[in-house]
Computed example of a mutant assay.
Amino acid sequence: MDKFDSLKMDIQKLLDSDKIVLILIRHGETEANFTKQLSGWHDVKLTEQGLKEGKELSKAFQILRDRFSGIYSSDLSRARITAELALGSGEKIQISTELRELNFGDHQNKVYSSENKSIYETLFTMKYQAPNGENWNDLKNRIMNYLKQQIKGKGVYLIFTHGGAIFSLTNQFGYTNTIKNCSCIGLELDCNTLEIVNQLFYWEFPTL
């Protein structure tokens, strides 16, 4: 059994469970990921590698696409195209600006490296505040407020979004950086409050 079959089986188990589950998927590789730029709301394109990664995800998601209670994507093309490739169609995807990456404000397109200490030392901490932009709690609240309006009951909801967006929802479980491109995480929500209560799985995209 390869990693994609394993992911498909994990999702099938959740589809048959009595839970509210978010499956968060990071988009494929972009040029900004490769150069370590904070692309934020800038609409950067997927690389050839990123397109290939999205197509590979279809091994797990395309056969299941009619079973999700909702499918959502950031409007930025790197997330939207990853979703279309993974599902084999854009027909069922609801697009929203609320699922965008962190608004990096004045740090937009800055390079994330140890040479830029003002960003590097605080970026993946709760101290980080993008000048004229958002902080991680702003981003978490933006995403969760949107998703709570979409959730109509128990089921599995699929969200294609960004590394920072996923970090804002998972740092409570000890994450200190973004997950790998096209990797995904399953989170359980409380059925009454719709707050995140548990991480169900983390699946890392294999090296191609």
Rank of each mutant, 00 (worst) to 15 (best):
D18C: 05
G88C: 03
L147V: 03
T161F: 01
N33L: 00
K117F: 10
Q149A: 10
N181K: 08
D138A: 07
G90N: 10
Y146S: 06
S6T: 10
Q199F: 14
I166N: 02
G50E: 05
V156P: 01
S96E: 08
L194P: 04
R142D: 04
Q108H: 13
K19T: 01
A32F: 08
Q94T: 15
V197S: 15
G28H: 07
G155P: 03
R80C: 09
F34N: 09
F34K: 14
E84H: 00
G88Q: 08
A83K: 04
Q149D: 13
E195T: 11
T207E: 15
E98F: 13
Q129R: 10
C184G: 10
N177T: 13
D43I: 02
L194R: 13
D138E: 02
T122E: 14
G155I: 09
L99I: 01
K19W: 00
Q12R: 10
R80N: 09
Q149G: 15
K59D: 05
S74Y: 09
S69R: 10
A130P: 14
D75A: 11
L24F: 05
Q199T: 13
F160L: 06
N103D: 15
T193Q: 13
N33P: 00
P206F: 07
T176I: 08
L46T: 05
K154D: 08
T35N: 07
I20Q: 10
F61I: 10
N116T: 07
F124R: 06
K8V: 00
I63Y: 13
S6F: 09
G155E: 02
N171M: 13
D16L: 09
I71F: 14
Q108F: 11
G186R: 07
S39I: 00
R65D: 12
Q62R: 01
Q37H: 00
L15G: 01
G50A: 12
K110C: 11
F124P: 12
S69G: 15
L189M: 08
F4L: 02
L46R: 02
C182A: 11
G186Q: 09
G54I: 13
D18F: 03
Q199L: 15
K19P: 00
F173I: 14
S58E: 07
E53G: 04
F167V: 03
G153V: 12
D138Y: 04
G88A: 08
C184A: 13
S17N: 05
K52W: 12
M1K: 03
T176H: 11
G54S: 10
S168N: 03
K154E: 08
A32K: 02
I159K: 02
R80D: 05
W136M: 04
E188L: 04
Q199M: 15
N198W: 01
K59E: 08
F205E: 13
L57E: 01
E48K: 13
Y72S: 12
L147Y: 04
L102R: 10
